[in-house]
Amino acid sequence: MAFLEYLADPSTQRSLLEQSGEHLFLTLVPVAIAIVLGVGLGIWAHRVPALSRTIVGATSTVLTIPSLALFAIFVPLVGIGNTAPMIALTLYALLPIVRNTVSGLYSVDNAVVESAKGMGMGATKRLLKIELPNAWPVMLAGIRVATLLTIGIAAIAVLAGGDGLGTEIFRGLRRIGSAGAFESLLGGTLAVVVLALLIDLAYLAIGRLTIPRGIRE
């Protein structure tokens, strides 16, 4: 019952809403940067198979670094605040995007690419008009995973001086045992879950809108 009272409090609502906005910003900016970098790296890795292992390997290594450590590494360089978490989150988001771009491009039927080539379509046009559209469903799945991953990890940005829904969660954690601590903890966590679900729905819609009808499942 205490949790319902906590939720009904206008100040709680205001701060959760505000923190959700911050959280979204903290997530979407790194994902946007990771899309640009990751798709570029993925295309490069697909074009130069010798580099493929190195590029995918390097991005996987990043994912093995504990998140708190990765957040901390950048703090001495860029200081306390949102910048260090955002750099770390960009690196985390990179792997699923790079890997799915590479495997998406490999999943395009060779015959399709060869027939495009055989009709005199140059390399750039082939990439933009044939390869990327056909790799898109796999790439989008990678971007979605990267976004959901980032939403989860962004909750600890607060430890590196960032904001977002981590603020509410850690407010609860620090005061655990005292009145209202559990509610804060639960409220912040649930808000992250709701945010993730909403983002997932958004990706479903994006998929509907951007995956060409001819290759939709």
Partner: peptide
């Protein structure tokens, strides 16, 4: 150019 696997572009009409 016509090939055995045809290679139609699946994403366009």
């Amino acid at each position: 150019y016509v090939i055995q696997q045809i290679g139609l572009f699946p994403h366009v009409t």
